[in-house]
Computed example of a mutant assay.
Amino acid sequence: MDQPSRSAGTVRPGGRTARVRAAVMDATQDALVEHGFHGLTMDQVAARAGVGKTTVYRRWGSRAGLVTDLMNELATQSMPHADTGDIEGDLMANALSVLRAINDGRLGATFQAMIAAATSDEQAARALRVFYERRIGEWAGTVDLAVKRGELPQGTDGGELIRAVSAPLYYRLVVTREPVTLEDAERSVARALVAARAGAFVMRDPGAP
């Protein structure tokens, strides 16, 4: 699944409100990377962003509000899904985007902090889930196109196939704490594609035995 093409906080046109939000998102990401979700505070973010505490409290309300907006921003910044005309190429593009993101010093640390927080905090888990639901939904479109081209069986669940590509990479990042390499990405795509072509991701009829 695709990951953000740049870190949050890039200033875009839109006046002072947009600049304040960009500064706060940038400060939130920095604080999250340095201190983790539970070490992040509203006052800390306001000071880093150079804005008044009242502004941060009024607009975001809580630590959860900050990280939820940050994850929304990262999802918005993500590139659209690939359309190479070939499902193997599309899935490889997805795997490479994951690889780049998790090996990026800032983005990788951001995701690790959010994943760690999600194991013990429902608000953090919700923010992370919304981010991945958006990205999985975007990349599932590549699978739908492949089904239409006849590359994959009818009824293939695009979201499940995209999860199958990225899951081994995240397992190495978060669980076994191993380096995640290009070879890992290629192997993940190859295995997921073999399974998909064999019908492993075809959605079952709820009424079927």
Rank of each mutant, 00 (worst) to 15 (best):
E151I: 08
M42I: 15
V98H: 05
V147S: 02
G207D: 13
D121Y: 10
E160V: 08
R177W: 03
V143R: 12
G137S: 11
D26S: 13
G158V: 06
A208E: 15
A47F: 00
R19A: 07
L182E: 15
D104Y: 00
K53A: 06
L169M: 15
E151F: 07
P13G: 04
G36H: 02
V24R: 01
S78W: 05
V56C: 13
R16H: 15
A27C: 11
R19S: 03
D26F: 06
N94H: 09
L107S: 02
M1Q: 07
I162G: 00
A167Y: 03
R163S: 05
D86E: 14
P4H: 06
K148H: 12
E183W: 01
G155P: 09
E178M: 13
R134Y: 09
R126T: 14
Y171W: 05
A185R: 14
T110R: 08
T28C: 10
A49V: 00
T119S: 08
Y171P: 00
P206K: 14
Q44I: 02
Q112S: 13
P153T: 10
E88C: 03
E183L: 08
T76V: 13
A109V: 07
A118I: 07
R48V: 01
E178V: 05
T110K: 08
G14R: 01
P209L: 14
E34N: 07
I136D: 03
T68V: 04
A124S: 10
T54Y: 06
T76N: 14
G155D: 14
G14P: 02
L40H: 01
G141N: 11
L152W: 01
V194K: 15
R187G: 07
M114I: 04
T10K: 11
S7Y: 00
T142Y: 03
E138A: 11
T54Q: 14
I102A: 07
R197S: 04
A208F: 09
A208L: 10
S78V: 03
R59V: 08
A208K: 09
V130P: 02
Q3A: 13
Q44D: 11
L74S: 07
A22N: 03
R187E: 11
L193M: 11
W139H: 09
A22P: 05
L193I: 09
M203A: 14
A190F: 02
V175N: 08
R59G: 00
V11I: 11
Q3V: 05
T181S: 12
Q123H: 12
D104W: 01
L70R: 01
L96T: 12
S78Q: 05
V202Y: 08
I162L: 03
D26I: 02
A64Q: 12
R100F: 06
P209W: 10
A75T: 04
M203D: 13
E88L: 00
Q112P: 00
V24F: 07
A113I: 06
A124G: 06
V174F: 15
V33R: 03
G85W: 15
M25K: 05
E138W: 09
Q123S: 13
